[in-house]
Amino acid sequence: MSGLVDGRIVIVTGAGRGIGREHALAFAAEGAKVVVNDLGAGADGKDTGEHPAEQVVAEIKAAGGDAVVNGDDVASWEGAQNLIKTAIDTFGGLDVLVNNAGFLRDRMLVSMGEDEWDAVTRVHLKGHFAPLHHAAAYWRAESKAGRTRQARIINTTSGAGLQGSVGQGNYAAAKAGIAEMTIQAAAEMGGYGITANAIAPAARTRMTVGAGGAMAEAMAAPEGGFDVMDPANISPMVVWLGSTESGDVTGRVFEVEGGSVTVAEGWRHGPAWDKGARIDPKELGPVVKDLLGKAETPTPVYGAR
C-alpha cells in the first residue's frame, strides 16, 4: 500500500525528540525521505552532548525507511543554507520543510534579561525564517527552470503565540511572529507552487513537562485510554499538510491537540467608527467604549488571573 507522501523529500527541524521526532517518524511511515535535523540541545537550548537525531534516523531505517542526520544550527544563515543543501545533495531535491526547532527560557518580562530574549527569539523566529528563506529560494529557482514542485512549508507556532502566556513573553512574541510570517509567506510564494501553513500544537514535551505546576499535571500521561497529550497525535495533521492533497490550503494556522483540529482565526477588522474628519482626543472615550462593547471578548492569556 502506498503512503500519503511516497517519495516526497522532507526536512524536519528539531526532530531528535518530542513532537519533531514524531513528525519525522510519521513522514517516514507514509513513504517520505526525511532529513532529521537536531542539535541535541536541552529544553533551554544548552548543549547536552547527546545525538538524538542519529537515534531517530536509525529507527526510520530499521523500519525500512530512508533518512539522514543533519546537525546544523537552523538559526544560523549558513547552517540553514546547508540544511537545505543536505536534502538536495542526499535525496535530489526538497518538497516539504517542517520548522519545529525551539526551546524555552521562561521569565516575566520585568525580570527577563536581554540574553534570554535574544536566545529564544533567535531560535524560534530566525530559526524559522532562515530555513524558509533558503528553501523558498531553491523552489523559486526550480519554478523558473520549469520544474515547479508541490512545495510545502509547515511552521510551528503555539497557543502562547496566538493568545499569549504569562511568564513566556519572549516565546509568545516569537511564536506570534511565526504565525504572521506564515501568512506573509503564503501571500508571497504561491506563484512558485509553495504553500505555507502553521500548526499550534498542544502535547506533552520536555518543555511542557518542565514547566511544572498545573501545566505539567495537565500534560501527564493517563494510566489508560486515549493519551490526549501524546506528541504523536500532532503529526497526522503535519503529514497531511506536507502531502500533495493539501495544495489548496495555504496561509492558515491550525490548533492541534489529541484528536482535534481547530482553524485559528486571527486578527481581522472588527467594529469601526468614522467621524469623517480629524478626531479630537477628548471625544474618544465614549467612542472606544462603544466599539469595545460591540467587539468580541479576547481569548484570555494563558496563566492570567
Rank of each mutant, 00 (worst) to 15 (best):
P231L: 00
A203K: 03
V238I: 06
R147E: 11
A264T: 13
K144M: 13
E223A: 13
M215L: 15
A221K: 12
A179W: 00
A160M: 04
T182W: 01
D248G: 08
A187W: 10
E142Y: 07
N197C: 10
L241C: 07
A141E: 14
N233F: 00
T262V: 15
T182L: 08
T250Q: 07
V209Q: 11
A187P: 09
S235N: 08
Q168L: 02
Q168P: 08
G169F: 01
Q163C: 14
V228C: 11
A214D: 14
T208I: 08
A145Y: 09
I234G: 07
G242F: 02
G212Q: 06
E265R: 02
N170G: 09
R252K: 15
A200V: 10
G190I: 04
V256D: 03
A264S: 12
A185E: 07
A221D: 06
A174E: 06
I154K: 01
G242P: 13
G212S: 07
A203M: 01
A186Y: 04
G161Q: 06
A196Q: 02
S165D: 15
G161V: 05
P236T: 02
I194Q: 00
I153T: 01
Q150T: 15
G191L: 06
A160H: 08
A198Q: 04
A186W: 01
V263I: 14
M189Q: 12
A187V: 14
E188P: 09
